[in-house]
Design a protein around this nucleic acid. Structure first.
Length: 765
DNA sequence: GTTCTAGAAC
DNA sequence: GTTCTAGAAC
């Protein structure tokens, strides 16, 4: 069989498949008919778009390039988008490949340029110059002769405004290749790659260079590995379409050919494999191109770690799923499992076969639920997660895989929507557009589901009560599918409405929507019912474990320099004459911070021995936390009487540097020479700073505070705590905050987290 | 050249 | 937590 048959262009027989150069991941160039390329450079001012295009054009390997720059298109001055589109179309007609050199950070802004590719059948690529905001600001602030006049003091504002709305390019926009560059090294590699892209070469398709997840390997080596293990079906799913079945057969034939040839014709084999790979990708395309159906991929709930009987679970799945697809149009449900030998898949397949419904709208699929698009060719807008009750990552299985694949963004987005989940319930979380799961797999929502548990080692064990178990499992699937239907509805409605689908993707459809839903009467009824079923005290055990873990965190050794607060707390009388001690009680000492990070900054130090930090705090300490809080409030009020322009926050550092639990009372001007570095700034303005009111709530509800000990929080880029603008360094940040009059973020206005003269008055009245 | 950051030592 | 300082960034 000739693998070249079937319409893919035959490569020149004299050429070799492997490129003569290789410039980093994804530089999998092939010689072929020589398509033109439209490269859309995406990045804010200062990200180096023009430099990129100029560098490639200066070193280009024979391919004719044109650079379309909006900043110069009007006779050397800034022009319009229309002018750019026309110039690009003209250059393409002349046979040139084109760099689109305008920011194009939003999907809508670049969509017309993506369409250009269709007119001349050119490949459309995106190169996303996704450098840290502070680098772009820094560069654009300092440049003196920018073509578009984005320089000097205005630059920071422009860059910040643009970055607020940035949307990373997605394959679904119509790009055949997306290259992420997050530092100068990435940029250099990408420049080298495009420079070496000769007129008859083309670059491999896919997403390359995303740091959070390895590049999607689409090179020939991956395919060779596949061919060696004959595992095409295993990795690309069992929803064997006719085209895929054909590919599988070709693959086997090819392997035999290779063996017979004894490897002597390895070049030819490589070439054939290359063609086959393309064909395989085309077949994937056919599977995934059915985008008229909003698709939910879901794992079997409760049958893994929760040890729910597979036979019974499969009945529930088939019942709930077939019922759902019969009632809803334009949706597909796909039950996914990793292994081809999956018993739950075969049970479901068998049971579903006995029912009459449209089998293209509910089927099973073998593959990794986090890589359905890239590895399995199955486009799913929504995936379900078999979550734990705390909605926390880890624990192994699907939950760990999904949180891993989605990155931290999903953890934060989840936290926005819900803190915990009861068995039988689900919560839909919009996947942030920054998440690799969104960018690489096109997943816009993850729905966390908690099913019934039959494992005595896990919380809420139903002790083999399958009457309740099946009921709760049914509720879990119904809740999942209902949530999916809501998403599908908005999705279908917005398919032709780019703007609103963008909002949905970036999470502007407020997470509160799902929160409201979650807390709706239906759910609370269910929760009540479930509670009355006599759930075990296992969640408390889990919390107990949490507390132990937290204690272990604090089991660190404190340096001698970290002991001073402990000394003051244990023996305040020794220091009572010092100016810095403001108040001493049995429970706490109030101390002026020796190195205040704002105009007013005091510490309310607990006097309980052994309570080193927040991680040691348990429910029994709640009265103490309340005492510390009211002492803090009292002092904040006193300071507000002296200066009504101040605002205060009361809170704890997630991981304090000084031993002995202490509450910070700090004014929000951050006007102090002692605030010197990034760590200082981020420790008071990022999630590292835990508001006292939240801490008390959590300790009250869960017996401990949720601590995010992530050091990355302290290393984050410098952003204004009011308007969230980014700044390249501390001095620039400080001059900005001295002038910034933006309102504080809304989350601080809730629960009186931000104290001001007016909230104080309101509190008194 | 100066400014600024980040890591080591305390 | 701070101070000191090498060296990166400008």
């Amino acid at each position: 069989m000739d693998p070249g048959e079937g319409g893919s262009p035959a490569a020149p027989s004299t050429s070799i498949a492997a490129p003569a150069f290789r410039a980093g991941p994804g530089a999998d160039t092939r010689e072929d008919a020589g398509k033109q390329v439209v490269v859309i450079l995406v990045g804010p001012p200062g990200s180096g778009k023009s430099t990129f295009a100029e560098a490639v054009m200066a070193a280009a390997a024979g391919r004719p390039w044109a650079r379309v720059c909006q900043d110069t298109i009007g006779k050397g001055k800034a022009g319009t988008k229309i002018q750019c589109l026309k110039a690009a179309a003209d250059a393409l007609k002349e046979g040139k490949s084109v760099f689109i050199d305008r920011c194009n950070l939003e999907r809508e802004q670049r969509s017309d340029f993506v369409k250009l590719g269709c007119t001349v059948q050119a490949d459309v690529h995106a190169v996303f110059l996704d450098l840290p905001a502070k680098v772009c600001i820094s560069r654009s602030v300092s440049r003196t002769s920018h073509e578009g006049n984005v320089q000097g003091g205005m630059a920071a504002m422009v860059v910040n405004r643009m970055l607020k709305n940035k949307q990373a390019p997605l394959l679904t926009e119509g790009f055949s290749r997306i290259t992420f560059c997050t530092d100068d090294d990435d940029i250099k590699k990408a420049v080298d790659m495009y420079s070496a892209l000769g007129p008859s070469h083309s670059l491999a398709s896919g997403v390359f260079g995303q740091k959070s997840k390895g590049p999607v390997q689409t090179g020939i080596m991956k395919f060779l590995k596949k061919a060696d293990t004959s595992s095409v079906n295993k990795s690309s799913g069992t929803m064997v379409t006719s085209s895929e079945r054909k590919t599988g057969q070709q693959n086997t034939t090819l392997k035999q050919e290779n063996l017979e040839a004894g490897g002597a014709c390895s070049m030819q084999v490589e070439k054939k494999l290359d063609n086959l790979k393309e064909k395989e990708e085309q077949s994937k395309e056919r599977v995934s191109s059915d985008t008229s159906l909003c698709t939910l991929a879901f794992p079997s709930i409760s049958t893994a770690d929760f040890q729910f009987d597979l036979e019974k679970a499969s009945e529930v799945i088939v019942d709930a799923a077939t019922d759902f697809v019969q009632k809803h149009d334009n949706v597909r449900l796909v039950l996914v499992d990793l292994s081809q030998k999956s018993r739950i898949l075969s049970l479901v397949k068998d049971k579903a076969a006995k029912k009459s419904f449209d089998s293209s709208r509910f089927f099973t699929f073998v593959g990794d639920i986090t890589q359905l698009h890239s590895k399995g060719g199955l486009q799913c807008n929504v995936i379900a997660n078999a979550a734990n009750w705390r909605l926390k990552p880890g624990g192994g299985g699907v939950n760990a895989a999904i949180f891993n694949a989605a990155g931290e963004a999903l953890q934060h987005a989840t936290k926005e929507c819900a803190d915990t989940l009861r068995p039988g319930n689900s919560v839909a979380v919009p996947v942030p557009s920054t998440s690799p799961l969104h960018q690489q797999e096109g997943v816009t929502h993850v729905i966390h589901v908690l099913g019934p548990n039959m494992n005595p080692m896990r919380p809420d064990c139903l002790k083999n009560d399958y009457t309740k178990g099946c009921k709760v499992l049914h509720e879990a699937y119904n809740s999942l599918f209902e949530n999916f239907a809501t998403i599908a509805q908005s999705y279908t409605g917005k398919q032709n409405d780019e703007t609103s689908s963008r909002k949905s993707a970036s999470g502007v459809i407020s997470p509160n929507d799902s929160k409201t839903k979650r807390e709706g009467s239906d759910d609370s009824e269910r929760t009540k019912k479930y509670n009355s079923m006599g759930s075990s005290d296992a969640p408390n055990q889990a919390r107990e474990e949490d507390n132990k873990k937290n204690a272990a965190v604090t089991n660190k050794t404190w340096g001698s320099w970290a002991q001073s607060l402990y000394e003051v707390a244990m023996h305040p009388e020794k220091y009572k004459n010092a100016d810095s001690i403001l108040e001493i009680s049995d429970e706490f000492v109030v101390l002026k911070d020796l190195y205040p990070k704002a105009k007013r900054h005091v510490l309310v130090i607990s006097r309980t021995d052994g309570l080193d930090s927040l991680a040691d705090v348990k429910k029994a300490h709640l009265p103490l936390l309340r005492s510390l809080h009211s002492a803090g409030l009292k002092w904040a009020h006193k300071f507000l009487e002296e200066d009504a322009s101040l605002k205060f926050r009361l809170g704890y550092h997630s991981v304090p540097s000084m031993r002995q639990l202490h509450l910070h009372v700090i004014s929000q001007d951050f006007n102090s020479p002692s605030l010197k570095n990034k760590k200082h700034w981020n420790s008071f303005t990022s999630a590292f700073f835990l508001d006292s009111v939240d801490v008390m709530d959590e300790v009250d509800q869960h017996g401990s505070a949720t601590i995010n000990p992530d050091e990355k929080l302290l290393a984050m880029e410098l952003r204004c705590h009011r308007c969230r603008s980014a700044h390249p360094n501390i001095p620039k940040l400080k001059s900005h905050i001295a002038a910034c009059k933006s309102p504080f973020p809304s989350h601080l206005l809730k629960k009186d987290k931000l104290l001001s003269a007016s909230t104080m008055r309101a509190g008194c009245s």
